[in-house]
């Protein structure tokens, strides 16, 4: 009898859109696994939204979560195949450090102390990498810093892809602990 309140999802939204909004945070974290900042992940989730908005209503979706993650996984994989790496290599150092330091897109020149702080941060990151055990360090360097795929890294090191994933996992854990605060 009573109409649905303004906080409710509008009635015309299909199950896919509803599932999207329910899982938006998790999908964002999923997509962010391969982006260089959260803003890029937000761009990707916007792409996902546009795709499902085009789909919704026209299809009978039994398992909306599965479809969402299938589409998200495709976006994730395509994102790496796209120009992310090359754009990173060509980009300006200061712009990079702004992303590191602030996360905000500031257009004007950064202050000298910001540049210094960014340099110190890079120093800290490099030290943390240098202290990883040898094999872990090689895997991290090739895969993460030089941008090789897990398979290419495995080939370069003469070990299995599974082993590389284990090295990367251990490196992430080690670096996260080391670089906390």
């Amino acid at each position: 009898m009573a109409p649905s309140g303004p906080s409710e999802t509008p009635g015309e939204d299909g199950p896919l859109i509803r599932a999207f909004f329910e899982k938006r945070e998790s999908l964002l974290l999923f997509l962010a696994a391969r982006t260089r900042c959260m803003a890029t992940a937000e761009d990707l989730i916007q792409d996902l939204y546009l795709k499902i908005a085009a789909l919704d209503g026209g299809t009978d979706v039994r398992a909306p979560s599965a479809l969402l993650y299938r589409m998200a996984a495709n976006i994730l994989v395509d994102h790496v195949r796209s120009s992310q790496r090359s754009s990173r290599r060509n980009s300006d150092w200061r712009q990079e450090t702004r992303t590191v330091m602030g996360g905000e897109d500031v257009v004007d020149e950064p202050a000298a102390d910001e540049v210094l702080a960014a340099k110190q941060r890079v120093r800290l990151l490099a030290d943390a990498v240098a202290e990883l055990p040898l094999q872990m360090r090689r895997a991290f360097r090739l895969h993460k810093l030089e941008g090789l795929s897990q398979a290419q890294t495995a080939q370069a090191m003469g070990v299995s892809v599974k082993m590389i994933e284990q090295h990367i996992q251990a490196a992430i854990r080690n670096l996260s602990q080391r670089l906390r605060s």
Binding site: E25, L29, A32, A33, T35, R36, C37, M38, R88, R89, W93, E96, T97, T99, V100, A118, R121, V122, R123, L125, A126, V129, A130, R141, K144, L145, E146, G147, I172, R173, L175, S176, L179, R180
Partner: peptide, 26 residues
């Protein structure tokens, strides 16, 4: 779980955004 993942993600993304600088430093 989300808290831990976000922490790991922050470090991971930071390395992504300044990979070349870290490589140069190494």
């Amino acid at each position: 779980h989300g808290v831990a993942y976000k922490r790991a993600l922050a470090v991971w993304q930071e390395f992504e955004s300044c990979a070349d600088e870290v490589l140069a430093e190494l």
